[in-house]
Computed example of a mutant assay.
Amino acid sequence: MLRTKIKKGDIVHVVAGKEKGKEGKVLQVLPDKQAVVVEKLNLLKKHTRPNQKNPKGGIVEREGRVHLSNVMIVCANCVKPRRIGSKTLPDGKKLRVCKSCGEALDKEG
């Protein structure tokens, strides 16, 4: 399983593909597929049969996955897509930091 620098709840910017230039919140990280599911991006139409949850059936839109190489995390301080690095605190905890401004991306505590 591959480790990713992007976590659920992060705001990401799509840098390549059909959704290029759009931003959204990460709903799910799929490390084994090296992908993320981003809110309201890469929408797919799924045809469903009638069931208890959806008695009428029909066409349902849902988010598809976007490859990790096609997204960049948005720094809250810079408000731009940035590369991220890590910094180890004196107590041994690791923090994700913006490479541009050095601001921490994780909430400390």
Rank of each mutant, 00 (worst) to 15 (best):
Q34I: 13
I59H: 08
V38D: 00
V71T: 08
R82P: 05
R96H: 09
C101A: 05
P31H: 03
S69G: 10
G64Q: 06
H67E: 15
T48L: 14
N54M: 12
R49M: 10
L89F: 09
A76M: 11
V38N: 00
N54A: 11
R65S: 15
I73A: 06
N54T: 11
V79T: 15
A35Q: 01
V71A: 06
R49L: 14
V37G: 02
N42S: 09
G92K: 10
V29G: 00
L30W: 08
L30P: 03
K25P: 03
S100W: 15
E39L: 05
K99R: 14
S69V: 11
K40P: 02
K94A: 09
C101E: 04
L27P: 01
K99T: 15
C78M: 04
R49V: 13
P55D: 09
K87W: 11
E39K: 11
V97H: 05
Q34Y: 13
L27Y: 03
V38T: 00
V74A: 02
P50T: 06
C101K: 04
L95E: 10
L95W: 02
T48S: 12
M72K: 13
K94G: 07
I84A: 06
E63V: 03
K94V: 11
I84D: 01
K80C: 08
P50R: 07
V97C: 04
L41Q: 00
L41V: 03
D32T: 08
L43K: 08
A35N: 00
C98L: 05
P55Q: 10
I84L: 07
V66R: 01
L89T: 10
R65H: 15
L27A: 07
G57F: 03
Q34E: 15
R82W: 01
H47R: 13
S69L: 11
V36T: 07
P81V: 06
S86K: 12
P31E: 04
K93E: 14
G24W: 00
T88S: 08
V74L: 06
D91V: 03
G92D: 06
V26G: 00
V29C: 00
L89Q: 11
K33D: 14
V60S: 05
E63Q: 09
K40M: 12
R83I: 10
V37Q: 04
P81L: 04
V29W: 01
L89D: 08
E61P: 05
C78Q: 05
K93N: 13
D32G: 07
K25W: 02
L95G: 01
I73Y: 01
L95C: 04
L68E: 14
E61Y: 11
N70F: 09
C78H: 03
C78T: 08
S86E: 14
N70C: 10
E61F: 12
N51M: 06
S86G: 12
